[in-house]
């Protein structure tokens, strides 16, 4: 065996391998993340932090009516989005996964079909449904007219706009939780399902009593991802309702409010990095804390069952 190369050369080689990755992560993940906490305590002049103002930005976002009214209304909308997506999108996904689990003829094709919208950009999907929901020439109202229903201007009506965007989100994403549930269901042993069947369990019992507890790990992932997705919701409402959450703020969510605050809406064009940073930090803490708590609770549930 040849003599080992000197250790400093080995060290240099390892450093060479790690350097580019570490440099990119430091410059574009670690440093920005740390500064975002710092920036939230500053008043900004353009893109430069100006004066240290303590918690004033946070107080404005949470308590001063000019900001706080929007903050809390937007948070409420995010909560509605989360609840609605859990019920409709993920409920439907669970049903689809169960239907696919049967592995009936054609199930592979169905798997590919249900996942197809997932690979499309939210911009494409948002514009497509905006055109379909158009009161003048959209196919949604044209289809309703065929059965004698007079459709609404879905995106223009305060009562239906948020629902219409939630529906679009469900159409876009349903394949994702469906295939995560399916992967979970496929890990359940055949013997378990056979035994349940022999004991006389029908599909309803199988779905609610046998499979549901056994796919708890998949459910955990779906809940957490839906939660993060719902409270970071931006692209679909931006494309379908604009940066102000039209009509009349009925579709305004935290992502839009953050974007308007930090980078300015079309009307004001003003950048406010101080309040923007405070809002981002609050959103980050909210997501991190609630996700961590939810993860603990959901994981405990997994072990129990």
């Amino acid at each position: 065996m040849k003599p080992r190369r000197p250790p400093w050369r080995r060290g240099l080689w390892i450093a060479f391998l790690l350097a580019p990755g570490l440099a990119v992560m430091t410059l574009f993940v670690a440093a920005p993340l740390l500064s975002s906490f710092r920036y939230a305590f500053y008043n900004f002049h353009g893109v430069l932090p100006d004066t240290f103002i303590g918690l004033a930005n946070f107080r404005d976002i949470l308590l001063d009516p000019t900001y706080a009214d929007t903050t809390w209304r937007a948070l409420g909308h995010n909560a509605i989005v989360f609840a609605a997506l859990m019920l409709t999108q993920n409920g439907l996904a669970y049903l689809i996964a169960f239907a696919l689990l049967k592995a009936l003829p054609g199930h592979r094709i169905h798997q590919v079909i249900v996942f197809l919208p997932v690979v499309l950009s939210a911009v494409i999907v948002g514009f497509l449904w905006k055109l379909f929901l158009h009161p003048l020439f959209g196919i949604v109202n044209a289809a309703l007219a065929l059965v004698g229903i007079h459709g609404l201007p879905w995106l223009g009506d305060e009562r239906t706009a948020l629902g219409a965007i939630i529906f679009t989100n469900a159409w876009h994403w349903v394949g994702f939780p469906a295939l995560i549930f399916l992967a979970g269901m496929q890990r359940i042993s055949k013997e378990t399902l056979e035994a349940a069947r022999i004991d006389g369990a029908d599909d309803r019992v199988l779905m609610t009593r046998i499979i549901w507890p056994l796919v708890a790990p998949s459910a955990t992932i779906v809940v957490i991802l839906t939660f993060i997705g719902s409270f970071n919701w931006f692209e679909l409402p931006y494309v379908m309702a604009g940066a102000t959450g039209s009509p009349g703020g009925a579709t305004d969510v935290l992502g839009l409010f953050f974007y308007r605050t930090a980078f300015g809406s079309a009307s004001s064009g003003l950048q406010d990095f101080g309040h923007g940073s405070a809002l981002a930090v609050l959103m980050f803490l909210f997501l991190a804390i609630v996700s961590a708590l939810a993860l603990r609770i959901l994981r405990a549930r997994e072990i129990e069952t």
């Binding site: 990755g21 570490l22 992560m25 410059l27 574009f28 993940v29 670690a30 440093a31 920005p32 993340l33 500064s35 975002s36 920036y39 893109v47 993060i228 970071n232 931006f234 930090a262 990095f273 923007g276 940073s277 981002a280 959103m283 980050f284 997501l287 991190a288």
Partner: peptide
Amino acid sequence: MFFLAGLMVPLKLAIIPLFIQ
């Protein structure tokens, strides 16, 4: 650990410092 911690970070929320950077 340093790399894996990046999995948890929603980078979109760091858009302001990224912009400044």
